[in-house]
């Protein structure tokens, strides 16, 4: 090979092609999303009505917020199984705080609690070198248990009216909570793409040894990912509570699976280092649309789990097939 001068004898791809090459996966998923919407609109005339669209937006808020944190964690090749029960537990913390604190402080209190739980996750995983799966599985159990203990196994209702504003208000016809969601995604996208911390998170997931050897703060940013995940679980709890002005200790059960599915559908690799926050956003919308569609089609709720599970596995299988082909090509190129 003309090794010294040119890396590959490859013609420069046109600018548009190169852009798509970088975001190939997001593009594939976006096409899937569009096709899905189109199909649903054909099947159900109700799909493209304003009220259903608002409904889809509303439904994507909780899963969407938590999926940001899950993306951070999966990018460093971790996993956070505790997000669902932390949403439940921090919701109870929120509910209890309202009786003694003004609304903003109560929200802060819940977020701090979530962040603290995330810190414990991250600290044990990073410093104790225990598998993320195990530690967050434990936290999942502890979180749900704390929710029951703190609440006495009763739901807390009649939360302050001002909290309800978060769920019911709109700006220019768009629900406030959806705007918050989009803003959070914009911040996360900026952070992961353009800051030292964001690139460190990618580097950790891609090759932790190389990251450490290059002098990156591996431990700090690994823990940070779990703190973000825990804190965002609490943010999700706030919006969950705002919806019906009541919070239940069993709230958000199973949320971890939806968020992991959304992140993976969005193209992230469970081995870390690969995936984008935009992909996750598309993944969340796909998850919500599938649920929405199944409801619109009046699919028996008992069958919905089977449908969703199959779709997730099929989507990821397809993705693995495509990326394996890409990886094989890349490996071959290196030889020789």
């Amino acid at each position: 090979m003309s090794g010294e001068v040119v890396p590959r004898k490859r013609r420069r791809a046109p600018a548009l092609r190169r852009l798509f090459r970088g975001a190939q996966l997001e593009l594939r998923m976006l096409i899937l999303l569009v096709l899905l919407s189109f199909g649903l609109s054909l099947i159900s005339p109700y799909f493209f009505t304003l009220s259903n669209i608002l409904n889809v937006m509303d439904q994507s808020v909780i899963t969407g917020i938590v999926s940001i944190g899950q993306t951070f964690v999966i990018l460093i090749a971790g996993i956070d199984l505790s997000v669902g029960s932390l949403t439940g537990a921090t919701g109870i913390v929120l509910g209890l705080s309202f009786s003694v604190l003004p609304v903003p402080l109560a929200i802060l209190c819940a977020i701090l609690a979530g962040g603290f739980a995330g810190f414990i996750n991250g600290f044990i995983i990073t410093k104790g070198r225990v598998a993320a799966f195990i530690v967050t599985l434990g936290m999942m159990s502890v979180g749900r248990s704390m929710a029951y203990v703190l609440s006495g196994a009763n739901s807390i209702s009649q939360l302050p009216e001002s909290l309800g504003e978060l769920a019911s208000s709109t700006v220019l016809g768009v629900p406030t909570n959806f705007i918050v969601l989009v803003v959070l995604y914009a911040i996360a996208w900026y952070y992961l793409t353009f800051t030292k911390g964001g690139r460190t998170i990618y580097a950790i997931g891609s090759n932790v040894e190389a990251a450490r050897t290059a002098g990156l703060s591996v431990d700090f940013y690994s823990i940070l990912a779990y703190v973000v995940s825990g804190a965002l679980s609490a943010v999700a709890a706030v919006f969950l509570a705002a919806r019906i002005l009541s919070i239940d200790p069993i709230a958000a059960t199973g949320l971890e699976l939806d968020t992991i599915a959304a992140v993976v559908i969005g193209g992230a690799s469970l081995f870390g280092g690969r995936g984008t926050i935009i992909g996750t956003f598309i993944g969340v919308l796909i998850m919500v649309l599938i649920r929405n569609g199944l409801n619109l089609l009046n699919v028996n709720p008992y069958w919905q789990g089977t449908a969703i599970g199959s779709i997730i596995v099929a989507a990821v299988l397809l993705e693995r097939f495509l990326s394996a082909r890409e990886a094989a090509r890349r490996d071959d190129e290196e030889e020789g």
Partner: peptide
């Protein structure tokens, strides 16, 4: 220990700078 496989040449080159 040396390379971040998912990164471009530029980001690999500037990895120590990031640290």
């Amino acid at each position: 220990q040396g390379l971040v496989p998912d990164f471009s040449v530029r980001e690999n080159l500037l990895l120590a700078h990031i640290g």
